[in-house]
Write a protein that binds this DNA or RNA. Sequence first.
DNA 1: ATGGTGGCCCGGCCA
Length: 255
Amino acid sequence: MRIATWNVNSLKVRLPRIEEWLGDMQPDVLCMQETKVSDDAFPALTFMSMGYESVHHGQGQWNGVAILSKVGLDDVVSNFAVGEPDTDARIITATCGGLRVSSVYVPNGRSLEDAHYQYKLRWMAQLRSHVAALSSPTDAVVVAGDFNICPADIDVYDPAKFVGATHTSEPERAALAELLDWGMIDLFRTQHDDAKLYSWWDYRAGDFHQGRGLRIDLVLGTKSVADRCTWSVIDRNARKGQLPSDHAPVIVELD
DNA sequence: ATGGTGGCCCGGCCA
């Protein structure tokens, strides 16, 4: 089974690229983030014509998450399963091919002093509660999406530039570690111990072509999932060419 | 170099 996650940064603008990419890569499951469309405007028929069932949790011009699947799409949970619902559309969960899959768009945080940063930390805690409420560490669980957190300095093109900034701060990494401690494993990193490879590059200042990126898009899996994982890639080709998203898809293959 | 680009939808906000 092939599972992918991709922050598409506007489904409206990106749909031609997404269709092309789905045809090329043929993932069984695709988690998307930042669709930036309402549920009414979600192009479910386009995906259906390509063999995918789909579910979407959107709010219009900002945020929005979706799951596409060729291997079943059941027991859908929009938003958090426990606690206060998020007013932003940032998480949707479904069972696909025996996996409990969540597509997540973690808040950016903006800056360490911003209220949005505290929202990000609370959001990560609620994500752990959500996963723990719906599943156990011995289940086959996948949490995939844009975490807006670099797990370690190896995931940052220049860690010195991010001292005092979001995405690399200790509290953010601790919040991610809480989720890993519950029983999740960073599948790309288990396949590539020391690779300096990134999934996001700022549109500005030629960052992509200069190699100034971050690895913030993650596919996390419980141990039974990690044991099935045979390879993982970040498809940086999808960041090239006409009208690319600022994120590249991350793909994992499971036996 | 505190800039730059690209999405929202048409004036700034968000990333």
